[in-house]
Design a protein around this nucleic acid. Structure first.
Length: 723
DNA sequence: TACTATTTAATTTTT
DNA sequence: TTAAATAGTA
C-alpha cells in the first residue's frame, strides 16, 4: 500500500494525528493549522491503510457545508466515491437514526421537523391557547428555556422548580410544548438530538448494533458540542469505539447556544487513554497577524494553551485607524478597499467583519456610494423565506394533517374568509378535545359555525384533500408545482404590486426547481416528499443565490469562522460594541468575546485593519466610546496607526491614545489630537474634538463641550488637556 | 380584512 | 434609528 498521497503533504504534527493508533485522540487544531485536512486524511488513512470499511466510520460536523466539504475531499483523496460512509451534521445523523427507528423512538413515521421560527410560532400559539399574557411571559424566553433544557438532555420530568414560581411556570410551558409537539408529530432541532440520544440509551441492542458498526468516530469543531451531543458521542463510542475529535478551545464562540468548551477537558477524563496532538503551525497568516492573535488570546484563563507560528514572513503591520465616527470609519474602509482593488486585487478576497449585524448598514451605504459590489452574509436563507415556508406548510399538511403549525400558517393564506375568530373557535375545540386543528375544523364546520364561515372552512379542508389526491403518485417537482398553484399562493403573490411580489413568485418557482434537482436517497424509507421537507428544515439553503459576482464580503465575526481572506477589516472595535456591552460584566462572556476577536484576527492572511469610532450613533443616540480593550492587547510593535486625514499634528502614539495618560497640548508639541479626542478646557469643561484645521501655531479645533456647546478654539491659546 | 399609527426594544445563529 | 409587533381605524 502506497501511503504517500495521504501523508506527503502533511507536517509532523498533522502526520502524527492522521496516523495515530486506534485509540481516543484529541487534536487541538489552531486556526489555519489544517484542521479539516487532518480529518480528511485521517479518514483516508483509516480506509486505505488501516483497512477500515467506510461503513465503519462516522464523521460528524456542525454545518452541512462542512459535511459536504469533508465528503468531497475524502473522495478526492481516495479517488473513489464513499457512499456508505456516514458523514453529516449532528442533526442530520440524528434525523437519519430517528427515521430508521421511528418506532423505537416512539415517533410517528411521518414526523416533521420544525425550525426555530416554527418553534417560536408554536410557542406563541400555545400561550394564546392558555390565555397567557405574552408580555409577562416572553415567547422568546420560553423558547430559550426549552431549548436550553433539551441541550442539557433534560425533560420536564427531570426538572425541579426549587420553589421558584417563575421556573415552575417555565417547566409547565415546556411540558405543554412537548404535548403539542407530540400531538402534531413535530420535532424541533434540539429534540432530534435528545431523541436520538434516548433512542440509544433506552435500546441497548440498537446501541450495540451501532457501536459494532461505527468503530471510528471523527468529530469536527469539537469545542462546539453541547451536552447532549457529547453524551450521544460518548454513548456511541462506548468502551470499544475510537473517537478522534478535532477542535480549538480558543475558537469556541457559541457558549450562548449551549456549546461547552469544557468537553475538551472532559474528553480526556472520559477517555483516559487519550493522546493529544496540537497543531500549531499556521499556513494562513503572516507572523505579525499570528503574534497579534496569540497576544490577545493569551489574556484568557483556562486555555489548553497553544501558540500559533508560521515559517512564513512577518508581513505588514496591522493597521489601526481611529475614526471620528462610524461614517468616517466606513469612508476609511472604502478608501482602502478602493486602493486595494485598484492594485488589481479581487473584491471577493476582501472581508469586512463586525460584531453585530446592525453595523453593516453604514458600510453598505458607503459601498453603494462608491459603486463597489458587496455581499452581506447571514440574511434570510432560501427555505426561511415567508413564501417558501407557506408553500412548505401546504406540502406538510398534505403529508401530515395533524401538523397544527402548518395548518395555522396557511389556513387563511391566501385569504379565504377564515378570520381570527373562526380560527379561535377551532383552537378552543382542539384544546377541549385534545385533537388537531384539522379535526377541530371539520367538527365545528358542521356544527358551531355560521354557514358562511363553515363553507370557507370546508372549502379549505377540501382544498387540502383535493391537493393530496391530485398530487399522489406525481413526481416531487410536479407535486410542488401543483401545490403552489392550486393553493392559490402564486396568484396571491402575483397580486402584490412591485418587485416584492415578483420576487416571491420567482422564489416559489425556484422551489419547484429545488424539488426537481433534489435527489432522494433510496436508502431512506421515506416518501420523497417527506424527505424533501426534512431537507428543507435541516438545510435552510444558501443565503443568496447570486454568489457569482466578485463581491466584497460583509459578515459578522461569528459567520467568518472557518473562512479566510487576504484582506480583512475588523470594524467597530470599541468597548461596548466589541466586547459587547452585554458580555463585559461577566468574565466568561468577556473571554468568549476575546475568543471571537481571536477568530476575527486569524481570518486575515496578509493585511489586517482594525478600526474604531470615537463617536458612534447607536439606537439613534450618539455615544462616545473607548477603543476596544482588545486593541490594547495587541503589542505595539505589530501595529501601525493610520493618521486621520486632518493634519493637525502627528497622530498620537498608541500609548497616549489608549492609556489614561494626560498631557497638555502646547504649540509645536508633537503629541497632537485627533477627531473625537476627549479634552478638558479650563473654562468650558469637558468636550470632544469635532474638527481641526491649520497647522502649528495657527491650528484651530472645533470642540463640542458637554455644557458649553460647540466652539472653535485656537490650539496655542486654548490650553486643552487631553483626557 | 387590510392598512396605518403607535409602541417597544436593540448580540452573536450551525441545525 | 429602525424594524417589528401590536393596536386601532376605515
Amino acid at each position: 500500500m502506497d501511503v504517500t498521497p495521504i501523508l506527503e503533504s502533511l507536517n509532523d504534527a498533522q502526520r502524527q494525528a492522521v496516523t495515530a493508533p486506534a485509540e481516543p485522540t484529541l487534536v487541538i487544531a489552531g486556526a489555519g493549522s489544517g484542521k479539516t485536512r487532518v480529518l480528511v486524511h485521517r479518514a483516508a488513512w483509516l480506509i486505505d491503510v488501516e483497512g477500515v470499511s467506510p461503513q465503519g466510520l462516522l464523521a460528524v460536523t456542525f454545518t452541512n457545508k462542512a459535511a459536504a466539504e469533508m465528503r468531497g475531499r475524502i473522495e478526492a483523496l481516495l479517488d473513489m466515491p464513499v457512499n456508505h460512509l456516514w458523514i453529516g451534521t449532528f442533526h442530520g445523523l440524528a434525523h437519519r437514526l430517528l427515521r430508521r427507528h421511528w418506532r423505537e423512538a416512539e415517533l410517528p413515521q411521518n414526523f416533521q421537523i420544525i425550525d426555530s421560527d416554527d418553534q417560536l410560532r408554536l410557542i406563541k400559539r400555545l400561550l394564546k391557547n392558555l390565555e397567557i399574557d405574552d408580555s409577562r411571559w416572553v415567547p422568546r424566553e420560553i423558547q430559550y428555556f426549552i431549548n436550553a433544557q433539551k441541550d442539557e438532555g433534560l425533560r420536564p420530568k427531570h426538572l425541579d422548580d426549587d420553589g421558584d414560581p417563575n421556573r415552575r411556570q417555565m417547566i409547565s410551558f415546556y411540558k405543554e410544548y412537548e404535548e403539542v409537539c407530540a400531538r402534531g408529530g413535530l420535532v424541533d432541532f434540539a429534540e432530534l438530538l435528545l431523541r436520538a440520544h434516548e433512542l440509544w440509551r433506552d435500546n441497548p441492542e440498537l446501541l450495540a448494533h451501532y457501536q459494532r458498526r461505527f468503530q471510528h468516530l471523527l468529530v469536527d469543531e469539537f469545542q462546539d458540542t453541547n451536552a447532549i451531543q457529547y453524551a450521544w458521542l460518548r454513548l456511541l463510542a462506548g468502551k470499544e469505539g475510537v473517537p478522534f475529535v478535532v477542535g480549538d478551545d480558543d475558537q469556541s464562540i457559541y457558549r450562548w447556544r449551549g456549546a461547552r468548551v469544557e468537553h475538551i477537558h472532559q474528553f480526556q477524563k472520559d477517555f483516559p487513554s487519550t493522546s493529544v496532538v496540537k497543531l500549531e503551525q499556521n499556513y494562513r497568516s503572516t507572523a505579525t497577524i499570528l503574534n497579534a492573535a496569540n497576544a490577545v488570546i493569551a489574556n484568557n484563563n483556562s486555555r489548553m494553551g497553544k501558540n500559533l507560528w508560521t515559517d512564513g514572513a512577518d508581513g505588514e503591520a496591522i493597521k489601526m485607524y481611529a475614526a471620528y465616527n462610524e461614517r468616517d470609519e466606513s469612508d476609511f474602509v472604502i478608501g482602502r478597499l478602493r486602493d486595494w482593488i485598484d492594485h488589481g486585487n479581487v473584491r471577493a478576497d476582501a472581508a469586512i467583519l463586525y460584531r453585530s449585524n446592525a453595523q453593516s448598514r453604514v458600510l453598505e451605504e458607503s459601498l453603494i456610494n462608491a459603486g463597489i459590489p458587496y455581499r452581506v452574509y447571514g440574511g434570510l436563507r432560501f427555505f426561511e423565506r415567508a413564501e417558501i415556508k407557506d408553500a412548505l406548510a401546504y406540502l406538510r399538511l398534505i403529508a401530515n394533517r395533524d401538523d397544527d403549525s402548518s395548518f395555522e400558517r396557511v389556513v387563511n393564506r391566501p385569504t379565504r374568509g377564515i378570520g381570527a375568530r373562526t380560527v379561535e373557535s377551532m383552537r378552543a375545540y382542539a384544546r377541549a378535545n385534545s385533537c388537531a386543528m384539522w379535526r377541530a375544523a371539520g367538527a365545528i364546520a358542521s356544527d358551531t359555525l355560521t354557514s358562511r364561515s363553515a363553507n370557507s372552512v370546508l372549502a379549505f379542508l377540501n382544498l387540502i384533500e383535493r391537493m393530496a389526491r391530485e398530487t399522489s403518485g406525481l413526481d416531487l417537482q410536479d407535486q410542488v408545482d401543483h401545490v403552489i398553484h392550486a393553493s392559490g399562493l402564486v396568484d396571491y403573490f402575483k397580486k402584490d404590486k412591485g418587485e416584492k411580489g415578483e420576487t416571491r413568485v420567482e422564489n416559489l418557482l425556484e422551489l419547484v426547481s429545488a424539488a426537481k434537482s433534489f435527489e432522494p436517497d433510496p436508502a431512506e424509507e421515506m416518501s420523497p416528499l417527506d424527505e424533501f421537507l426534512s431537507h428543507a428544515a435541516l438545510e435552510s439553503g444558501e443565503g443568496q443565490a447570486d454568489a457569482w459576482e466578485d463581491c466584497v464580503q460583509l459578515m459578522t465575526m461569528h459567520s467568518a469562522k472557518g473562512l479566510e481572506f487576504p484582506l480583512v477589516f475588523m470594524c467597530g472595535m470599541e468597548d461596548g460594541l466589541f466586547p459587547h456591552q452585554r458580555s463585559i460584566a461577566d468574565p466568561n462572556g468577556l473571554e468568549e468575546e476575546r475568543r471571537l476577536c481571536y477568530v476575527g484576527i486569524t481570518r486575515a492572511k496578509e493585511t489586517l485593519y482594525v478600526t474604531f469610532a470615537e463617536q458612534r450613533r447607536l439606537h439613534g443616540m450618539d455615544n462616545f466610546s473607548q477603543p476596544s480593550r482588545f486593541i490594547a492587547e495587541i503589542p505595539d510593535e505589530y501595529v501601525e496607526e493610520i493618521r486621520p486625514r486632518v493634519q493637525v499634528s502627528r497622530p498620537m502614539g498608541r500609548a497616549s491614545g489608549l492609556s489614561r495618560r494626560q498631557s497638555s497640548i502646547a504649540p509645536g508639541d508633537d503629541i497632537g489630537i485627533r477627531l473625537g479626542q476627549r479634552v478638558r478646557h479650563g473654562k468650558f469643561g469637558h468636550g470632544v474634538i469635532l474638527n481641526c484645521e491649520g497647522q502649528g501655531a495657527h491650528a484651530r479645533v472645533e470642540v463640542n463641550f458637554e455644557t458649553a456647546g460647540t466652539k472653535w478654539l485656537v490650539l496655542s491659546y486654548a490650553n486643552l488637556d487631553l483626557m
